[in-house]
Simulated assay, not measured.
Amino acid sequence: MHVGVNTLFLIPREVGGTEIYVRSLLPALQALEAGLRLTVFTNRENHDSFADYDRTLIDVAATSRPRRIVAEQTSLPRAAARAGVDVLYSPGYTAPLRATFPQVVTIHDTQFLDFPEDFPWLSRAAQRIIVGGSARRANAITTVSEFSRRRIAERFGVPREKIIVAHSALSGLFAPPKPCALERPFLLYIANTYPHKNATRLVRAFDRIKDCIRHTLVICGQPREGEPPPHPRVKRIHYIAYEELIGMVQAADLVVFPSLYEGFGRPVVEAQEAGTRVIASRSAAIPEIGGDGATYFDGESEDGIAQAIVDALNEPPDVRVQWIARGRENAKRFTWGACASRTLDTFCMALSNN
């Protein structure tokens, strides 16, 4: 099978978990299926980073979203047809709306519809047309959770049987011990501070209990529209090298994840793999992904967040050990081999549905 991979959306180090998904899934697909041929369709920014694959440059700068969208709808399908792909796979929400070959698209979530305040109105309108059109025209869809599967079916009016869950996964990077330079003890939240990430409510909850605990709250991620106001016991880290991030997760007494919307919730399972105690919001896909390896709170309640932090910090050592063990066991569910197997099944389904 010859699969084309649409990476026109991918700007290195700018698209977060979607980049991790693509760069981890492709080698897992090759390891799973020896006869699989991949051709990666690249943009100006990411072309060099896919040197290990057969690749075709679509001469567009993805930093210009309008130009990238036009190229995806015009240049990409022509290039894929010339390459003779059996299936075109688009792992970044959008795909050509007209094509002569079967297509699979990965839609990670429907955040732009469920939390529209995070997006400018023009971006929302464009995504509604292009993501919705991609969902309806694709021969098959993959997504990263059962929660997202339900939302895609409801929001875009596509049958659920057309949507396959291929959970995102872990690569074992958070298990080996790493050093941490931060002063302990601290609580940790990893997120770019978009409004739905709920960082302001977390800081207010932390302020209520700051005199009862010794901890600093560390928020690691780029400031966005939901950036909380400064607080004397809150340390903001905007960027950190990946190795340092792993050490920070391992050193935290608690990873707190109050996000109100996630299609997957990678920081939850990364912390579980690291052997760190996790508490998280009972929202969207988070309980599905965190499983029985985390405790959950109402993310819209400052009292609920504050009480969950205090309860987790005060639990007996043997109880804490049990929670950490359950978290590590839960994290083992998410492997790139399993994700690749489900994705390959979806390619076959797209061929049969064409």
Rank of each mutant, 00 (worst) to 15 (best):
V85E: 06
A325D: 06
D114M: 09
A140Q: 10
K162M: 08
I69P: 03
I309L: 10
L25R: 00
R23Q: 05
P27Q: 03
L36P: 03
E270R: 02
G132R: 08
E14T: 03
S283L: 03
V3Y: 05
H167Y: 15
R137Q: 11
L260E: 01
L10A: 01
V310M: 15
V105Y: 01
T56S: 14
A80R: 10
N353T: 10
P91N: 05
V203A: 13
C339T: 08
V249R: 10
L313P: 04
C212V: 12
A31R: 12
A28Q: 06
L351G: 10
S134Y: 04
A191N: 15
A191Q: 06
V85L: 09
N330M: 09
A126I: 04
E288H: 11
F119A: 05
A285P: 00
V105R: 13
N6C: 00
G293T: 07
N192K: 12
N354K: 13
A99C: 13
R204Y: 13
L113Q: 13
I190A: 11
L217R: 15
S352Y: 11
E72V: 00
R13G: 10
E315Y: 13
F41I: 00
K178D: 12
L97K: 15
Y194K: 15
V234P: 01
M248Y: 13
A308L: 01
C339A: 06
P179S: 00
I286E: 00
N198S: 13
Q127F: 14
E161V: 12
A71I: 04
E19A: 09
N192A: 14
T142L: 04
T142K: 12
V5Q: 03
I141L: 03
A252V: 07
V203T: 10
I163C: 02
P185L: 14
P91F: 06
V319T: 15
T335I: 00
A83N: 04
A274F: 02
H196W: 01
E329P: 04
F206A: 07
R149E: 07
Y261H: 15
G293S: 14
P316R: 07
H196D: 02
E300I: 06
G92I: 05
R282G: 06
P116I: 02
L113S: 05
I289T: 02
T56D: 09
K210Y: 06
V310Q: 07
S90G: 08
R184V: 01
P185Y: 02
R224N: 11
